[in-house]
Design a protein around this nucleic acid. Structure first.
Lengths: 210, 210
DNA sequence: CGGTCAGGATGACATTTGTCACTTACTCTA
DNA sequence: TAGAGTAAGTGACAAATGTCATCCTGACCG
């Protein structure tokens, strides 16, 4: 674990901070498909990813979801930071997209480190900025792209974070991520296959247009 | 100007920081409808709003716009902060929604203050969080609401930031903000009027459902 | 091997949004 | 006062998306 921490964050943090993270962070290895943070739950810890990928979701009033963005190793979710500091509840749901190793860092430590370590402060601001840019990209996708374009982009993003151009998922799961219906996704996938951008198989899709 | 600075930010910042902002910030009084920051331009200053409101816009590949959110007095746009620090170009356009007074703070000062003043650091993190929550709201609006719901919410938001339930705007301007066409807006406004939620006049709209 | 269930495909139809063309109404200026 | 320009309304049509029902296929289990 310490080796992975060193590998992912060693170039960012002072040795002293790395030692503190090592001492206080709770290591977890979570299989694919698990919810590690949910909407409305108080935030007690903040995840630092060591390996794998997480998807960050929003939810509407009917309980239907929408994918905001993916997180990968070396990332954290900045929203957890200030929700933790403000003692508010989570506005987003985090679900493991693939088997994931991470450190859960206690929320109260984050504030202490903000004052104590310039590298942590820089990390938090950089993380906010990066997530902000990703949310902007999500807004752009929703506002400017049609559903078939969103679908292709989604498959490409998924292939990128799992490092596998063969995606194991169902039409229904994709429909949930894109906040639409399964029938619409099946039709659009058919269209993308016709266009030579993907190859369809039962329970998985191979992305050709990367 | 110093009085307004004290009024809007006095409760947030140390006296020493306020003095530095006063000394280095460039006061501006900008009429409604002016672009104060544009996409692709390098960021040399960051605005601190004293009075009025600004709308923050995104642009697609065809040059069509989309409103992200409004900023009011006591606000800044966190995206300018890290874009300024990273010496990158602006990803958003900022346009005055009403006559606006603000201080333009030099970008290089922001980084200095980050290390020097805990209150500035707190302000930046809080600002990031607030903007993040607003972007989430924008995502929700785009993903979960139909165009007529988005339109009503837009009018309500506009009324709120201008402190006037009679909005001076055109169907075409609203269509630009919502990234749609004027005809669609005219029809939906007609529908909202029928539903008793607004009152329509040429060049302005009165919001009844607040 | 047959039954069940999940995943996927298809047809028909409805709703929402967008585009184009044209007309009407209002405002401003010479 | 008339003309020009802008703002708004309407009709017709197209495209995109969503819903419902039904059927087909593959995997799994008893």
């Amino acid at each position: 674990m310490r080796a992975e921490l060193q590998q992912q964050y060693g170039y960012l943090f002072e040795d002293e901070l790395l030692a503190e993270i090592d001492a206080t962070g709770m290591y977890k290895n979570i299989p694919q498909g698990q919810t590690i943070m949910d909407i409305g739950e108080p935030i007690t810890h903040m995840p630092l990813l060591l390996n794998g990928a997480i998807k960050i979701l929003r939810e509407d009033n009917e309980g239907d979801e929408l994918l905001l963005y993916f997180l990968e190793k070396g990332d954290t979710c900045a929203m957890t930071f200030s929700c933790g500091m403000g003692k508010t509840k989570s506005e987003i749901r985090a679900v493991t997209e693939s088997d994931t190793e991470l450190l859960m860092v206690p929320a109260q430590k984050m504030e202490v480190w903000m004052a104590k370590y310039p590298s942590w402060q820089q990390f938090i601001v950089d993380s906010y900025h990066t997530r902000m840019m990703e949310l902007l990209e999500t807004v752009d996708t929703l506002a400017f792209l049609r559903m078939d374009e969103r679908l292709l982009k989604h498959l490409q993003d998924k292939a990128k974070v799992t490092h596998d151009d063969s995606i194991h998922t169902t039409h229904q799961d994709i429909a949930y991520d894109l906040h639409t219906s399964r029938v619409v996704i099946s039709r659009l996938l058919k269209k993308l296959e016709k266009e030579g951008k993907i190859e369809m198989h039962r329970n998985h899709i191979k992305v050709l247009d990367l």
